[in-house]
């Protein structure tokens, strides 16, 4: 298994009750693993105790990046959330804790 942390970096943004979190691969080999293994289902499972979803996944091969849009993730919306981190800025680092199979990685 390999951590997303070792494959790429991440930042989270917010719009209303939606968190958008991207993962950018460090190199081409990491990109192949991320593209194959970091599915919307895996991301939804990692955030299931925080967000109700759904999760939409976008691929950006030229930037070696994935963009995940996670709905109903911010406690009803940034401006009314009871959370300490109302914007969900720290949610990017939860993405990096996900572990993926890395079968084809040299």
């Amino acid at each position: 298994m390999v951590r997303v942390y070792d494959l790429g970096h991440s930042r989270a943004g917010d719009k209303g009750d939606t968190s958008s979190i991207m993962v950018v691969a460090y190199d081409a080999a990491a990109w192949e693993v991320l593209r194959r293994e970091l599915t919307a289902e895996r991301v939804m499972a990692a955030y299931a105790h925080i967000a109700r979803g759904p999760v939409t996944r976008y691929e950006l091969p030229k930037l070696k990046a994935l963009n995940f849009v996670i709905e109903r993730a911010l406690g009803g919306g940034v401006t009314r959330s009871l959370a300490q981190d109302m914007h969900g800025k720290s949610l990017s680092t939860l993405m990096l804790t996900i572990e993926l199979p890395d079968g084809n990685r040299p």
Binding site: G13, S20, A65
Partner: peptide
Amino acid sequence: ATCTEQLLYEMHDP
């Protein structure tokens, strides 16, 4: 790396 993070920041459908 810094530009990619900001380019995708708060974007939904790219």
